[in-house]
Amino acid sequence: MDVTFFTAWIQEIIRVLSINRDLLTRLDAAIGDADHGTNLDRGFTSVRQALSDTPPDTPGQLLTLVGNTLIRRVGGASGPLYGSLFRQLGKSLGDAPEVSLDDLAAAFATGLESVTRLGKAAEGDKTMVDALAPAARTLSSAAREGLKPGEAFGRAAAAAAEGAKATIPLQARKGRASYLGPRSVGHEDPGAASAALILSALHP
């Protein structure tokens, strides 16, 4: 998987998040402050601009640029969290022009770590971690099993989607939804939903 592959992923994320902007904002309205869709759309619109201004040469450069741009443009909780995730992906992949599924799975695991280090959320706290963590696990096991990237991505996306849906019955312990106490139960976490969308954008 080279820089073209990862560029396609990011372009697909931009597309999917823009389509789902209002959905994400509606999810955030229910248990947050009604800005998650707008936040990510603003961030990834800037990412599109950044990529066309200085097209990166390697997957690592690309993902680092994405992470930095998100940190610089999104704000809120999701900005630093997604920013760190992508920045860490970039850092892990280094300056290799080509990346294997093994490399990607390992990078994803460290990316997830950077999210939990910064946000201090564990699985089950009803955050994006509930979608990112199962996706990271699935990627790792798929890589271990030697699956093709296409299949691995499909499973990871499914795991993320499942993780996102599984936030519905949870009571939030982190982020804005935690202020609602028991009233956060019954709603899907917007960050988990956007994480699932980001995973669903991974196509071979």
């Binding site: 402050d33 009604a34 800005d35 707008t38 936040n39 603003r42 940190i71 610089r72 443009r73 999104v74 704000g75 809120g76 909780a77 900005g79 630093p80």
Partner: peptide, 8 residues
């Protein structure tokens, strides 16, 4: 932005 903390 509205209800969104500033960026670094």
């Amino acid at each position: 932005e509205i209800f969104t903390s500033p960026v670094p």
